[in-house]
Write a protein that binds this DNA or RNA. Structure first.
Length: 498
RNA sequence: GGUCCGUUCGUCUAGGGGUUAGGACACGUCCCUUUCACGGAUGAAACACGGGUUCGAUUCCCGUACGGACUACCA
């Protein structure tokens, strides 16, 4: 039976989507598109305490910006609605009941304080507390209490959780598409809480139930889930769903650029680079920068992210989203974590920036300038900047006369010959009707020839006189854009002040 | 501490029983250029360690070291 591939991206709305999450979404999307399947977006908002208003919208906008389209789920709907877990509590309760009835789960009445105390005691004896096959016989739960006692407690409104009754001795193994077989013994897994005392499920239950009900075929998620994957396998087993269980692929983590550990918001602050796709202002009003606002092009971000943990096996580095969907495969994802290097992201951005036409960039970013001037400016600067907004600031700077001059150049190049040449050039300029690069150059060389001075001798001095800087794009083009009157004025200023 | 996962240039990685261990970013040098940048060329730079297996191991196996994740009524 050939089955439609269905993957899901299932973030929690606890804040802005982290760049690692974006990559997870991307890989899911890539696999779905490659295999002609569907990409779902499910919001895992079962923790009311960590819910952040606006986070869901942020996630949707981020994916939209990047072109990671959702076929089914929050925001678009679909046959398995609702796709927000907070709206599915009845489903989880029902499924928890199935496990309870089958004797595969049980009620537990231990309070958090009691459990904390347990943990402290165990720790003081040098061991770790686990709610499991051996300890559950001594704790307050429906396995140790009589049926009447349990009933009474529940009816009295005493808070309780539902825990999975993990078998004492069972070998759990599953095949991870990236890591191959992973084996774990059930004795190392504790009786995880499935339903919290607030009546909402934990991640584990909700995730397994939803993935099953939504016919998910591939679970592609971060490596932080690898340790709980065996628990999920046990849950599939407990429900009798093992034969339709999705395949797992646990992605390597994105690591700090330097030092140890996974990439965090703090690293971004230290390094001065974004870790969120879009700018985000948290409920307290604190703003975090985003890739989009910093000037990263979505194509560059996608390409960069795709290559953090995956590669096509060829030497091609530049891939459009469409090319990525063609080339992508889970088999070529590697196992080890990748340090996040913003330099590579910048390089990708430069590549994509240069790929765009002068006209497109001009109409998108230089709307304050007349079109043909804007196009010329873009042409001059797009190969020398990393971000589009740098073209804008360069453009604006063009029309401001220099307020200071590069002293090193002045010291070595601002000599009598240069002054003589620049004076002659300046005086020849008013007669020049067609003030374009070629004509300007002709005028300059004509004047230099008369004086017997070589071009190379004066170019730098001239550049400094016009722009204040010792380096930059083609000076003739620059002067053309600045305009005749302004150039003459600047030369005057330089000649009289320097 | 326990469980699980990992380890090729500074970074992202290719490769895989016999290779001059390849590419990209960053870095150095040179060329181009009126300068800078782009571009081109080029250089430096890596198989964590110890045992096996083998004629031969960076590649396979086992240990060790190191790194990471998880260890909540968070996801």
């Amino acid at each position: 039976m050939s089955q439609e591939v269905r993957v899901r991206f299932a973030p929690s709305p606890t804040g802005p989507l982290h760049i690692g999450g974006v990559r997870t979404a991307l890989y899911n999307y890539l696999l779905a598109k490659k295999l002609g399947g569907k990409m779902l977006l499910r919001i895992e908002d079962t923790d009311q305490n960590r819910f952040v208003p606006g986070a869901e919208q942020y996630i949707i906008e981020s994916l939209q910006w990047l072109g990671i389209t959702i076929d089914e789920g929050v925001g678009v709907g679909g046959p398995h609605e609702p796709y927000r877990q907070s709206e599915r509590s009845a489903i989880y309760q029902e499924h928890a009941q199935i496990l309870l009835d089958a004797g595969k789960a049980y009620y537990a009445f231990d309070t958090s304080e009691e459990l904390d105390a347990m943990r402290a005691t165990f720790e003081s004896q040098g061991s770790a507390f686990q709610y499991n096959a051996v300890t559950r016989t001594r704790l307050k739960n429906s396995l140790t209490l009589s049926e009447e006692e349990v009933k009474a407690k529940i009816e009295a409104g005493e808070p309780y959780v539902i825990r999975l009754k993990v078998p004492a001795k069972e070998e759990i193994r599953f095949k991870d598409l990236i890591r191959d077989w992973v084996h774990v013994h059930s004795s190392t897994i504790d009786d995880k809480v499935l339903m919290k005392s607030d009546g909402l499920p934990t991640y584990h239950l909700a995730n397994v139930v939803d993935d099953h009900l939504m016919n998910i075929t591939h679970v592609i998620r971060g490596e932080e889930w690898l340790p709980s994957a065996p628990l999920h396998v046990m849950l599939y087993r407990a429900f009798g769903w093992e034969n339709t269980m999705p395949q797992f692929a646990h992605l390597p983590l994105l690591l700090k650029p330097e030092g140890n550990g996974k990439l965090s918001k703090r690293d971004a602050e230290i390094g001065g680079f974004p870790v969120f796709p879009l700018e985000w202002t948290n409920p307290e009003g604190v703003k975090s920068i985003g890739f989009r606002e910093e000037g990263y092009l979505k194509e560059a971000l996608i390409n960069f992210l795709a290559f953090l943990g995956w590669n096509p096996g060829t030497e091609q580095e530049i891939f459009s989203l469409e090319e990525l969907t063609q080339a992508f495969s889970l088999e070529r994802i590697n196992k080890s974590g990748a340090k996040f290097d913003i330099n590579k992201a910048k390089w990708y951005n430069e590549q994509y920036l240069r790929q765009q036409s002068d006209e497109a960039l001009a109409s998108q970013y230089l709307t304050d300038f007349e079109t043909d001037k804007a196009v010329k400016i873009v042409h001059l600067f797009k190969e020398r900047v990393t971000f589009p907004q740098q073209i804008v600031s360069e453009a604006n700077a063009l029309f401001v006369a220099p307020t200071s001059y590069d002293q090193a150049v002045i010291a070595s190049k601002w000599n009598d010959d240069a002054k003589k040449a620049i004076t002659a050039f300046k005086e020849a300029l008013p007669a020049l009707d067609n003030f374009v690069a070629d004509e300007i150059k002709h005028t300059l060389s004509a004047e230099l020839e008369k004086l017997g001075i070589k071009m190379g001798k004066v170019m730098q001095a001239l550049r400094v006189a016009v722009t204040g800087a010792g380096a930059g794009p083609d000076l003739m083009l620059l002067m053309e854009i600045i305009g005749k009157d302004a150039v003459i004025q600047r030369l005057d200023t330089a000649l009289t002040t320097l």
